[in-house]
């Protein structure tokens, strides 16, 4: 593109990312605190409670088995939570997305800046979580260092389609459907709390859930085991879901902003 734009500094994608970070810099304490408190609560409840009954699973102590699941679901829940009311509101109530689009920022920049911000959030949440649980001896393998990477991929694979959904609907009552029929079932049946093999034939339902692939990769990393599918297959599904979500979100943003 020609024009005087090139001489200026901030890339529009980065400018969008920065807008979210301005807000995060004000709110990060609360957010880091909850990433910090959550694993402690979990470990207390499982270590003292459930774990006593379950003992070990697939040859590892239940606490060590469940930690990577909770880790992945932290990123998953953050991505879903952030991508609902805020996204719809920026089109429908505050129209701040319209304001952003009236500048040099393109729809691609808006999506990239937004997802980049969520990746940073997801990685911070997971890193804080790991910094806590590492002291409980539940991270068995140095591959655990790869979990933030998995969290980043899972964040994008979750946030992209949920953002697209939020940008497509006209009323926030649809979020209740999303929470009840997508997010809660996904959290319960994606191998976070028990192996999907226990669901018999129903386990194929987990295969379409990005969370299951995220959990599988996180668990493989923290326990130093082989994942159920080859790593490239899990990662491939996450990339495919992210790409489909991206495509859908671009279309939804276009319809909203260019009408």
């Amino acid at each position: 593109m020609a024009g005087g734009v090139t001489a200026l500094t901030a890339h529009p994608t980065y400018a969008v990312f920065e807008r979210y970070m301005v807000l995060y810099k004000r709110l990060w304490r609360a957010s880091v605190f909850s990433s910090f408190a959550l694993p402690l609560l979990f470990l207390a409840s499982i270590g003292l409670g459930v774990g006593q009954y379950v003992g070990s699973l697939e040859g590892v102590p239940y606490a060590a088995w469940i930690v990577p699941g909770v880790l992945a679901s932290t990123a998953f829940q953050m991505a879903v939570g952030e991508s609902t009311y805020g996204v719809l509101g920026s089109f429908k109530w505050t129209r701040s997305s319209h304001a952003m689009y009236a500048t040099r920022v393109s729809i691609g920049d808006m999506l990239r800046g937004w997802l980049l911000y969520l990746v940073v959030r997801g990685v911070i949440a997971v890193a804080v979580f790991m910094a806590v649980v590492v002291w409980f001896g539940v991270l068995a393998s140095p591959w655990a260092l790869a979990t933030p990477l998995v969290a980043a991929l899972l964040t994008v694979a979750t946030a992209a389609p949920v953002t697209a959904f939020a940008a497509s609907i006209d009323h926030d009552s649809y979020f209740a459907l999303l929470f009840r029929f997508v997010m809660i079932p996904a959290t319960l049946f994606s191998g976070v709390f028990f192996p999907v093999e226990q669901m018999g034939g129903w386990k194929v339902a987990a295969y379409v859930s990005p969370l299951w692939h995220g959990v599988a990769l996180c668990r493989a990393a923290t326990l130093g085991q082989e994942p159920p599918w080859p790593v490239w297959a899990h990662a491939g599904v996450l990339v495919a879901v992210a790409a489909a979500g991206w495509w859908w979100a671009s279309a939804a943003f276009r319809r909203r902003l260019r009408d």
Binding site: V22, R95, S96, A99, M100, T103, R104
Partner: peptide, 30 residues
């Protein structure tokens, strides 16, 4: 990038302060 637009309905960013509304908008323009 070369236009200045004031829409009929204000679409300021309610999460940001008055100052941040201006600085972030300036950053959108690079």
């Amino acid at each position: 990038a070369r236009l200045g637009v004031c829409p009929q309905l204000d679409n300021l960013d309610p999460d940001l302060t008055v100052w941040e509304n201006l600085t972030t908008y300036a950053r959108y323009f690079g």
